[in-house]
């Protein structure tokens, strides 16, 4: 057998192993170490214990970036999944040209976020943008899109004379612009995944339901949704992580970076600002640690509370 050359196995692992050690494991150790230091562009500036973490609690911009990220994730993910499920269901009927639709819906997925951000910034342009032109044509007023820091709930409740501020003002109009673009960008991927999930549901389920006299909504609610729940759960987890890690549109589209009154400053962008603009590398690692904990607990919470309702056939 292969006993004699046992060491050869390690030789095969070695290239991957070295890279994993140097650029996966070592950075994590380094990140933990750095978070206990004040660390500038030239290196460590002294041990500060837990001060970097303490600073998180009194940094209003950090809180703002967290609440922005909260609204962003909580709106992008369900909207993307619901819209995708809708289109996937339509594509799952016996119609012609399914391939053509699939091809078209998927194009945004393979295009770079930088290029799309440039184009969408042009579309959202407050004075010259095609979206406002469309709005005006429909008799609606122009919107300042990426330049409007007012919160959606602030506007909504303001119409009734109720004032809401801070976190409860909700996502700003500028953030909404990023949310719309993100839904558009990721829908194609979710449609293809949901469609594959729909096609995997055994036909017998539907036939049995029809024999029992179930129709329309009932079939969707009691057959399609449970059978599709593993797919939907998968989309929920992966899309949440993608949304949480959003950086590029904030960097390219918003002006000043982070948007009007920092209302589009998402937490990964804030991490970037603190590290590669302000060079507070120690503090940045404390932020990175929070990002890690949040994504980790997001996945754990989803597994614990939502996966219970998933039916794995």
């Amino acid at each position: 057998m292969l006993r004699r050359g046992w060491w050869k196995a390690y030789l095969f692992i070695l290239p991957a192993f070295l890279v994993v050690i140097a650029f996966r494991l070592l950075p994590i150790v380094q990140a933990v170490r750095m978070s206990f230091f004040r660390w500038g562009i030239a290196g460590p500036l002294g041990f500060v214990g837990l001060k970097n973490f303490a600073r998180l609690f009194i940094d209003p911009k950090f809180y703002l970036s967290l609440s922005n990220t909260f609204w962003y994730v909580i709106l992008v993910v369900p909207m993307t999944i619901v819209i995708s499920l809708f289109f996937a269901s339509l594509l799952n009927t016996k119609i012609r040209g399914r391939g053509v639709y699939r091809t078209l819906y998927y194009i945004p997925v393979v295009t770079s976020t930088v290029a799309l951000s440039v184009v969408w910034k042009w579309i959202y342009n407050p004075d010259r943008g095609v979206l406002n032109a469309l709005f005006n044509m429909l008799g609606l007023e122009s919107v300042k899109w990426l330049h409007d820091p007012r919160g959606l709930f602030e506007l909504l409740f303001g119409a009734f004379g109720i004032e809401v501020t801070g976190f409860f003002a909700g996502p700003s109009v500028a953030l909404l612009a990023l949310i719309i673009m993100a839904v558009w960008h990721n829908a194609g991927y979710c449609i293809i995944i949901a469609l594959a999930g729909l096609q995997n549901i055994p036909r017998q389920y539907y036939e049995a339901a029809r024999l029992d006299g179930a129709t329309g909504w009932n079939v969707f609610r009691h057959i399609t949704l449970p059978a599709l729940s593993p797919t939907l759960f998968y989309l929920l987890v992966t899309q949440s992580i993608i949304a949480f890690n959003t950086f590029t549109p904030v960097y390219v589209m918003t002006d000043p970076p982070g948007g009007p009154l920092s209302t589009t400053n998402l937490v990964v962008f804030y991490l970037y600002e603190q590290s590669f603009k302000l060079w507070n590398l120690g503090y940045a690692n404390a932020i990175a640690f929070v990002i890690f904990i949040l994504i980790f607990s997001l996945v754990v919470v989803q597994r614990k509370f939502i996966e219970r309702r998933v039916y794995y056939a």
């Binding site: 650029f23 996966r24 070592l26 950075p27 994590i28 380094q30 990140a31 750095m34 660390w39 992580i241 949480f244 890690n245 950086f247 990964v268 991490l271 970037y272 590290s275 590669f276 590398l281 940045a284 690692n285 990175a288 640690f289 990002i291 890690f292 994504i295």
Partner: peptide, 11 residues
């Protein structure tokens, strides 16, 4: 998650 790697990898 990838953001965690950015700063230490840079160093």
């Amino acid at each position: 998650p990838i953001p965690v790697y950015l700063v230490p990898s840079y160093v």
